[in-house]
């Protein structure tokens, strides 16, 4: 989906086109779901968060202002508030439980919510790279190959490998700035 498509999708969403809601869900539902899965202990909670995010977004679609950010960034902002609300409830219940059981289990340190969101945005962006660029990036990121090794494995010229790496990382970085945690107050 190009950024033009995203703009048109956002227009349809704001004007109440139900097909645009479905398209937004198909495109970004997995980001919202992943945020829930990685932030909340229970899969059912992640499903609820996904449902509530899109329900809330649709009912409040008139509050979306494209001048202040993209539709996915807005959706993820709603999702983050849903997750935070749910975590507060869970923590209250857990505290109550600890009091009842008179135990003192310090909660395990977890990655910050920002980091979790940024990872999800990165994972999603990786799947949107063109196949050759994605292959190069994956060989560098997950197989720890040097650019020379990647060139040998893929048969691509060294210059192409280096350019794929640079552009791929720049895309991840830009997307993070637009939709990641840093884009929100």
């Amino acid at each position: 989906m190009t950024s033009d498509d995203e703009v048109r999708l956002a227009e349809g969403f704001v004007t109440g086109d139900e097909a645009a809601l479905r398209a937004a869900y198909d495109r970004w539902g997995r980001l919202v779901f992943a945020l829930g899965l990685r932030s909340l202990p229970d899969r059912v909670d992640a499903e609820d968060i996904t449902q509530q995010t899109f329900v809330t977004a649709w009912r409040g679609r008139h509050t979306f202002d494209p001048r202040r950010g993209t539709l996915p960034a807005w959706l993820l902002g709603i999702a983050r508030r849903q997750v935070a609300d749910r975590l507060r409830v869970l923590q209250r219940e857990a505290r109550l439980q600890r009091v009842l059981e008179r135990t003192e289990d310090p909660p395990a340190p977890e990655p910050s919510a920002d980091r979790v969101l940024d990872r999800i945005v990165a994972a999603d962006e990786l799947t949107h790279l063109v196949p050759q660029q994605r292959r190069v990036i994956e060989l560098a990121f997950y197989d720890d190959l040097t650019h020379a090794q990647i060139a040998a494995v893929t048969g691509l010229p060294l210059g192409t490998v280096k350019s794929h790496l640079r552009r791929g990382i720049e895309r991840l970085r830009t997307r993070r700035e637009v939709e990641g945690a840093a884009s929100r107050p």
């Binding site: 997995r30 980001l31 996904t50 940024d118 999800i120 990786l126 990121f141």
Partner: peptide, 16 residues
């Protein structure tokens, strides 16, 4: 950015 993507892993996100 690289560290984030490495933490995220290569698996595509699961659809709800």
């Amino acid at each position: 950015t690289v560290a984030l993507a490495r933490e995220a892993g290569p698996a595509p996100l699961e659809a709800p």
